[in-house]
Design a protein around this nucleic acid. Structure first.
Lengths: 199, 199
DNA sequence: TCCGAACTGGGACGACCGTCCCAGTCTCGC
DNA sequence: GCGAGACTGGGACGGTCGTCCCAGTTCGGA
């Protein structure tokens, strides 16, 4: 492996680790497996990171940010009514999920991993705080675009949105049943859109 | 360790494995750790089970059955209206979750473990089919007790119930926010109870 | 009572793990 | 051009892993 500044190497290792986790799971993401994926030597790893844990810590934070960006770019406020807009949002997420199921599988796996490690438990919390913030931003944008306002605190509805999304994700990952997922998504959209009132 | 017929030993090992997984996660459930928990010697394990995988296969099926029974026993059809009954059902589940959070985390972890192992993927599906059947039974019983009927196929609503429950579980496990979980539970109960019509 | 089968504990195997060390190589500023 | 420091590759450490073997012990049926 040619020379490479530390920052770049760290990024490359994190990306490699992410690929390994998405493909084969957290349990398979050993240091050796990660450096093999990155095409580096074993020693390079501990030159860039103090420990395996240190990489995981950065990984969890960073990976969510990427996820966030990808999802945020896809969503647009439609021109129909609120119900149809939220419905379309869920449909778009389902499409994303169907396209990269291993990725969402890995995201949840990382959550379990973080929850199991006491010193990383707040990493999971931060991970979800990001999701919630993303959801809140989407809700705000949607409400503003359609001239309505939320009857409940936006943060609470945002958390609800995340909860619904998680449930739908878990369900689909297990059953791979598009129809059931769409049904759940419609029900969730119905519930959420009912929480707005005209401004 | 004294003598013990194979069947009994298998059961003891599965129980020990379950305790280890609940306490420390699937990743920590090595053969050595399990036999230590069971108070046996290492060789006894491979006398009772062909491999570690073989134990996990039995474990996943059995553990869900226990979970099922525990939850089923708790639920009762109240004498209020449907909305209140479903709400109370969720509240009861939340109580159960608050009481044994590691257990529900372990359930999700086991599902993910099964999903990651191609030859066990249908174990996860069967696990969730049981959940769905349990949910369907609860819904039927509730509807019968309150003199209403479901406007959608019971199976579909049952799946929705599982989806909501999963989402709420994940959310609470991450945030440990009782209020947010209760809010989500109320929203879910609202959605589901809206799917019934008088008979 | 004794014999064969069921069952036990201890130890060993090769493989993989995370981490570390160190001699060498390259690159940059002077 | 050269020295110092950034960076590399290979190999080694102690530890845990799943699995297996085997010499013993214990028990039920003859």
């Amino acid at each position: 492996m040619s020379r490479m500044p530390v920052a770049e190497r760290r990024a490359a290792l994190i990306a490699a680790a992410e690929r390994v986790i998405v493909q084969s799971g957290v349990g398979e993401a050993s240091v050796r497996r990660i450096v093999a994926e990155a095409g580096m030597s074993l020693a390079s790893f501990h030159y860039a990171f103090e420990s395996r844990e240190a990489l995981f810590e950065e990984l969890i934070g960073g990976v969510v940010a990427g996820e966030q960006e990808a999802l945020l770019a896809e969503f647009v406020v439609g021109d129909g009514d609120l119900r149809a807009t939220v419905d379309a949002g869920f449909a778009r997420y389902l499409e994303h999920l169907r396209g990269k199921p291993e990725r969402e599988l890995a995201m949840l796996e990382l959550t379990w991993y973080a929850l199991r490690t006491p010193e990383h438990a707040d990493l999971a919390r931060r991970q979800y705080a990001r999701y919630t913030a993303l959801a809140a931003a989407l809700l705000e944008r949607t409400a503003a675009g359609l001239g309505v306002r939320w009857a409940e605190p936006a943060e609470q509805i945002a958390k609800l949105l995340v909860v619904f999304t998680d449930g739908i994700t878990v369900g689909w990952l297990v059953h791979r049943d598009d129809e059931a997922a769409a049904f759940a998504a419609r029900a969730a959209a119905d519930t959420i859109s009912r929480m707005a009132e005209p401004r």
